[in-house]
């Protein structure tokens, strides 16, 4: 049986009296870009943390490449973690390491590699993420916001994962950099045949990159293709895709 790359079934997350997810389900297919959308406080980050195994849900099943992860021990999770790459919203680069060392860290952790090969492979990933070669020796504090995002992407790609999680990849970037980042994601997705799951608020990014979108409303998820989800009757979804900002966008683009 062929499993979806990522599958979430009936996820329940509760913090004290606050119910964040109540029976949330989604599935991500191979080679697609899946966007996760939702208002502030609807639990997008909690969902991502659950999928990454940083947080154990109260109930539900999460399968990555067919393997149930919610019941796994930490040791079993360790092996799963080598199979996906993650970028965090603020980059989460290790501030005391250079970009090159940041990219090498997953390699050191998971693969026994010659130092020379590791250097060159890390360099390859840095260039792949569109960073100039001299960025490799810089520390995160010396990088601009856009370069931090790219360095984080290079680190996420360190072990050539098939599955990539991006948390707000274009937040904090100017529109031009954001558009360039969209193109980079699309290029990598196509070239490396990646499956990309991204949390984003950027309507331009959603329309440019995503095949399907999952919207978190009322503690569960509405999943549909980007063409169909915009006509979903839910009020929040309508407001999201047809609100003032979305209108301004479509007027600008003449769509």
């Amino acid at each position: 049986m062929i499993y979806p790359v990522l599958e979430v079934i009936g996820l329940v997350n509760r913090f004290g009296a606050q119910l964040v997810h109540d029976g949330l389900s989604m599935d991500v297919r191979e080679d697609e870009v899946f966007g996760i959308v939702g208002g502030s406080g609807t639990g997008k980050s909690v969902l991502l943390r659950s999928i990454l195994g940083l947080q154990r849900p109260q109930a539900g099943i999460i399968r990555i490449a067919g393997r149930e992860i919610t019941q796994m021990t930490l040791g079993q999770l360790h092996a799963v973690k080598a199979r996906y790459g993650v970028t965090f919203q603020q980059g989460a680069l290790y501030s005391s390491l250079t970009v090159l060392q940041n990219v090498q860290l997953p390699m050191i952790e998971h693969v026994d590699m010659r130092p020379a090969a590791r250097d060159e492979l890390a360099m390859l990933k840095i260039r792949l993420a569109g960073l100039p070669a001299d960025a490799a020796q810089k520390y995160p504090s010396q990088l601009s916001g856009g370069m931090i995002k790219r360095a984080a992407l290079a680190r996420a790609l360190a072990l050539d994962p098939k599955l990539l999680f991006l948390d707000e990849p274009t937040s904090g970037l100017d529109p031009i950099s954001a558009a360039e980042f969209d193109e980079l994601i699309l290029y990598l997705q196509k070239q490396l045949r990646l499956t990309v799951v991204m949390i984003t608020h950027d309507l331009d990014t959603i329309f440019r990159t995503c095949n399907r979108v999952g919207v978190i409303v009322d503690r569960h998820m509405e999943v549909d293709t980007i063409e169909r989800i915009v006509d979903h009757p839910n009020r929040w979804i309508q407001a999201y895709f047809h609100g003032a900002r979305a209108r301004a966008r479509s007027e600008r683009h003449g769509a």
Partner: peptide, 17 residues
């Protein structure tokens, strides 16, 4: 080809700084 393109995109690799 992808590796080739990526590495070619910007001259030679930098000397160790």
């Amino acid at each position: 080809r992808l590796v080739e393109e990526t590495l070619r995109s910007e001259g030679s690799p930098p000397e160790a700084a």
